[in-house]
């Protein structure tokens, strides 16, 4: 495991085992990290909560890898060498519920395209790929529950694609506005995946 990030509303922000100080709570915490560590990316404000937490975590991870906020200076920019495979339990259910609200009242029936597009959990992988111009494999897998072994099987299997040299992987969950948990890592083809995923998922401060 090259680098890893944990973001959740109770534990706060941890990058490679080191805590990053944030003042705000809940989604405010994600906005605070965006302003402090990312910035200048208008697409961020259009994202749903699942994409925001996943995107911000990926930014922390990749800034750590390259020591640069400048996306074009980062490793793997514009290549197909890096895959993005993320997991969770609720899919996009929180945004699904927000979209459903736009069609549940017969008197006020205005289905929102901007919400509908986020009713697919894999959009978060697309947002990260767009930001970093990653042309590699992107996939989103939903599991009945968080299970590091099941995740490790899928992450190890990724490298069956010979073009894939490294991957952004992990658990990205946001099943309510103030309820999110991200455990994301950057792993390479030669890493001990099973061990890395176990460490990532079981890490407690």
């Amino acid at each position: 495991m090259r680098h890893w990030v944990i973001l959740d509303e109770t534990r706060g922000v941890v990058v490679d085992g080191e805590r990053i100080g944030v003042e705000a709570q809940g989604m405010g915490m994600i906005d605070e990290i965006y302003r402090g560590y990312v910035g200048n990316y208008m697409k961020y404000f259009k994202m749903d909560s699942l994409c925001k937490v996943g995107f911000v975590a990926s930014e922390l991870l990749l800034a750590k890898e390259s020591g640069s906020r400048d996306v074009e200076q980062r490793k793997c920019y514009g290549t197909a060498e890096r895959a993005i495979v993320l997991f969770n339990e609720s899919g996009s259910l929180y945004t699904d519920t927000r979209y459903q609200a736009t069609i549940s009242d017969e008197e006020n029936y205005f289905p929102s395209p901007a919400l509908f597009v986020y009713t697919l959990a894999n959009i978060v992988t697309g947002e990260i790929a767009i930001r970093n111009k990653y042309y590699g494999e992107t996939n989103f897998l939903v599991l009945p529950e968080k299970n590091s072994q099941a995740m490790a099987v899928q992450v190890s299997a990724l490298f069956a694609d010979k073009e894939t040299q490294s991957a952004i992987v992990g658990w990205v969950e946001c099943d309510a506005e103030e309820h999110f948990e991200v455990r994301m890592a950057l792993v390479g083809r030669d890493d001990n995946i099973e061990n890395d995923i176990k460490t990532l998922i079981e890490w407690k401060n």
């Binding site: 208008m42 205005f110 289905p111 929102s112 901007a114």
Partner: peptide, 17 residues
């Protein structure tokens, strides 16, 4: 403003709503 195709669709909803 640099709006995109989803924004255009959302403006269509705004016009109706």
């Amino acid at each position: 403003l640099g709006l995109d195709s989803i924004d255009a669709l959302e403006l269509i909803v705004l016009m109706e709503k």
